[in-house]
C-alpha cells in the first residue's frame, strides 16, 4: 500500500468520487442545486467518511466476517446521527435545505464502498488519509457541480448575484433533469480527458476507465447478474 500522501491525493483527482468512481450519485444529484448545499453536504460526508474509515480500521480485526456489513452500517449510521444533530444545532438552515439527504448519507455507497474496499484492509492512519482524500474530493465535486448549476441555473454563486437583474436564468439546470444531464456531461468530459491523455501519451487506454462504481460491491454484483441474465436470454432464444 502507498504512503499516507498518495492515499490522500488519489481521492482528489485520480479516483475522485463521484466523477471517476461513480459513487454516491443520489446526494450528488439531489443537493447540488446550489454551491452552498454542495459544500455543506460534502462537509458532512467528510466527517462521516473520515471517522467511519478510522473506526472501521480500528475494529477491523475483531469484526466477524458474517456480520461485517452490519457492523459497518452500524458505525456509519451512528456517525450520521451525530452529524444530523450537530447540523441541527449549528447549521439549521442547511439542515432544512438538505432535508432527507442527511440521514441518507448512511446509504451513500461511498461510505460502505470505502469501508469495504479500503478501511477493512488497512491501518487507521492510511484509512484516515483515504477517507479525508475521498471526502474532500467528493466535496470538491459537489461544490463544482453545485456552482455550475447555481451560476447558470439561478445566476448566483453562494447566494451572491452574478449577472445583475437582466440575466435570465437557465432554470432547467436547477431542476431534476438538469442535474442528470449536467452530471452526465461532466462524466463524459472526464472520459474524454482520459481518452485524450492516453492518446497523447501513446498509451493503451485502461479498458475499465468508465466501468463505473469500482469501489461499490453492489454494482459489481449487478453487472455479473446482468451478464448472466443476458446469457440466459440468448440461450433461451437459441
Amino acid at each position: 500500500m502507498g504512503s499516507v500522501a498518495s492515499e490522500f491525493t488519489k481521492g482528489l483527482w485520480k479516483e475522485i468520487p463521484p466523477f471517476r468512481l461513480v459513487l454516491g450519485l443520489c446526494p450528488t444529484l439531489a443537493v447540488t442545486t446550489s454551491a452552498e448545499n454542495g459544500l455543506g453536504m460534502g462537509a458532512a460526508v467528510i466527517f462521516v467518511l473520515a471517522l467511519s474509515n478510522v473506526l472501521i480500521s480500528l475494529v477491523r480485526s475483531i469484526i466477524p466476517k458474517k456480520v461485517r456489513i452490519a457492523c459497518f452500517i452500524a458505525i456509519a449510521a451512528s456517525l450520521v446521527v451525530a452529524v444530523e444533530m450537530l447540523m441541527q444545532a449549528f447549521a439549521y438552515p442547511l439542515y432544512q435545505q438538505l432535508g432527507i439527504f442527511v440521514p441518507l448519507i448512511v446509504v451513500n455507497c461511498i461510505i460502505l464502498g470505502r469501508a469495504e474496499a479500503f478501511a477493512a484492509k488497512n491501518p487507521p492512519h492510511l484509512a484516515l488519509a483515504d477517507g479525508l482524500g475521498m471526502g474532500i474530493g467528493f466535496t470538491l465535486s459537489l461544490t463544482f457541480l453545485g456552482s455550475l448549476r447555481e451560476i447558470f441555473g439561478a445566476g448566483t454563486w453562494f447566494g451572491h448575484s452574478l449577472f445583475g437583474p437582466n440575466y435570465h436564468p437557465f432554470s432547467f439546470l436547477v431542476q431534476a433533469p438538469g442535474a442528470f444531464v449536467c452530471l452526465g456531461i461532466i462524466l463524459a468530459g472526464m472520459n474524454f480527458l482520459s481518452i485524450w491523455q492516453a492518446k497523447r501519451k501513446g498509451l493503451e487506454l485502461d479498458p475499465n476507465f468508465d466501468a463505473g462504481c469500482k469501489g461499490c460491491m453492489a454494482c459489481k454484483k449487478m453487472d455479473e447478474i446482468a451478464a448472466q441474465k443476458r446469457l440466459e436470454r440468448l440461450g433461451a432464444k437459441a
Binding site: 475483531i62 458474517k66 458505525i75
Partner: peptide
C-alpha cells in the same frame, strides 16, 4: 457475532 454487533450498537447508543 452477537457480542460484537450488540457492543457496537450499545456503544453507539451511549455516545449518541
Amino acid at each position: 457475532m452477537i457480542v460484537v454487533l450488540s457492543l457496537i450498537t450499545g456503544t453507539a447508543g451511549f455516545v449518541l
